Measured scan of single mutants.
Amino acid sequence: GGHPVTTQMVETVQNLAPNLHPEQIRYSLENTGSVEETVERYLRGDEFSFPP
């Protein structure tokens, strides 16, 4: 991942996926670069990993 992630982006995802840890959200956003894509992954039931 190398996309810039803002606190705003993390908070937006958190509102839609409250049971995800912020670190999981941030890591996913760094890989996708997209709030929409991260939320899609969540709704699909994809696994969210923590940063290594």
Rank of each mutant, 00 (worst) to 15 (best):
G1W: 13
G1F: 13
G1C: 11
G1D: 11
G1T: 13
G1M: 13
G2D: 11
G2N: 14
G2P: 15
G2A: 14
G2F: 14
G2M: 15
H3K: 12
H3F: 14
H3I: 10
H3C: 09
H3M: 10
P4V: 15
P4A: 13
P4D: 12
P4M: 14
P4C: 14
P4H: 15
P4S: 13
V5F: 10
V5P: 07
V5Q: 03
V5Y: 12
T6H: 05
T6S: 11
T6C: 07
T6L: 07
T6K: 04
T6W: 07
T6Q: 05
T7N: 13
T7F: 11
T7A: 14
Q8K: 11
Q8H: 12
Q8S: 14
Q8P: 06
M9I: 02
M9V: 02
M9W: 08
M9C: 05
M9Q: 08
M9L: 05
M9P: 01
M9E: 06
V10F: 09
V10G: 01
V10Q: 06
V10I: 15
V10P: 02
E11T: 11
E11I: 12
E11M: 13
E11D: 11
E11K: 10
E11Q: 14
T12Y: 15
T12A: 15
V13A: 05
V13R: 00
V13L: 04
V13W: 01
V13Q: 00
V13Y: 00
Q14V: 09
Q14K: 12
Q14F: 08
Q14G: 07
N15V: 14
N15T: 13
L16F: 12
L16V: 11
L16P: 01
L16Q: 09
A17D: 02
A17G: 02
A17V: 09
A17S: 04
A17P: 00
A17I: 13
A17C: 15
P18E: 05
P18N: 05
P18W: 08
P18C: 08
P18Q: 09
P18A: 07
P18G: 06
N19K: 11
L20C: 04
L20S: 01
L20R: 02
H21F: 07
H21G: 06
H21Q: 09
H21V: 08
H21L: 09
H21K: 10
P22M: 10
P22I: 15
P22C: 07
P22A: 10
P22E: 10
E23G: 07
E23P: 00
E23T: 08
E23M: 10
Q24I: 03
Q24Y: 01
Q24D: 01
Q24K: 04
I25R: 00
I25S: 00
I25Q: 00
I25K: 00
I25C: 03
I25V: 06
R26G: 03
R26N: 02
R26L: 09
R26M: 10
R26Q: 08
R26A: 08
Y27F: 12
Y27W: 15
Y27T: 05
Y27L: 10
Y27Q: 06
Y27V: 08
Y27M: 06
S28E: 06
S28P: 03
L29I: 06
L29Q: 01
L29D: 01
L29K: 00
L29A: 00
L29P: 01
L29W: 01
E30C: 09
E30S: 12
E30I: 09
N31L: 15
N31Q: 15
N31K: 13
N31S: 15
T32W: 06
T32P: 01
T32V: 03
T32H: 04
G33D: 03
G33C: 07
G33V: 03
G33K: 06
S34F: 03
S34T: 05
S34C: 04
S34I: 02
S34H: 03
S34K: 04
S34L: 03
S34Q: 02
V35C: 04
V35Y: 03
E36Q: 13
E36F: 11
E36L: 11
E36S: 12
E36M: 11
E36Y: 10
E36I: 11
E37A: 12
E37D: 10
E37P: 00
T38S: 07
T38N: 00
T38H: 00
T38I: 05
V39E: 04
V39R: 01
V39Q: 03
V39F: 08
E40N: 15
E40L: 14
E40W: 10
R41N: 09
R41I: 09
R41M: 12
R41P: 03
R41S: 12
Y42L: 06
Y42K: 00
L43D: 06
L43C: 09
L43N: 12
L43M: 12
L43K: 10
L43G: 06
R44I: 05
R44A: 12
R44S: 08
R44H: 09
R44G: 06
G45Q: 04
G45R: 01
G45D: 04
G45P: 01
D46L: 10
D46T: 06
D46A: 07
D46H: 10
D46G: 05
D46N: 07
E47D: 13
E47R: 09
E47Q: 13
E47M: 12
E47C: 09
F48K: 00
F48S: 02
F48Y: 02
F48G: 02
F48W: 00
S49W: 10
S49E: 15
S49N: 11
S49M: 15
S49Q: 15
F50R: 03
F50Y: 11
F50C: 09
F50M: 08
F50I: 04
P51H: 06
P51C: 03
P51M: 07
P51E: 04
P51S: 05
P51Y: 09
P51D: 06
P52A: 09
P52G: 09
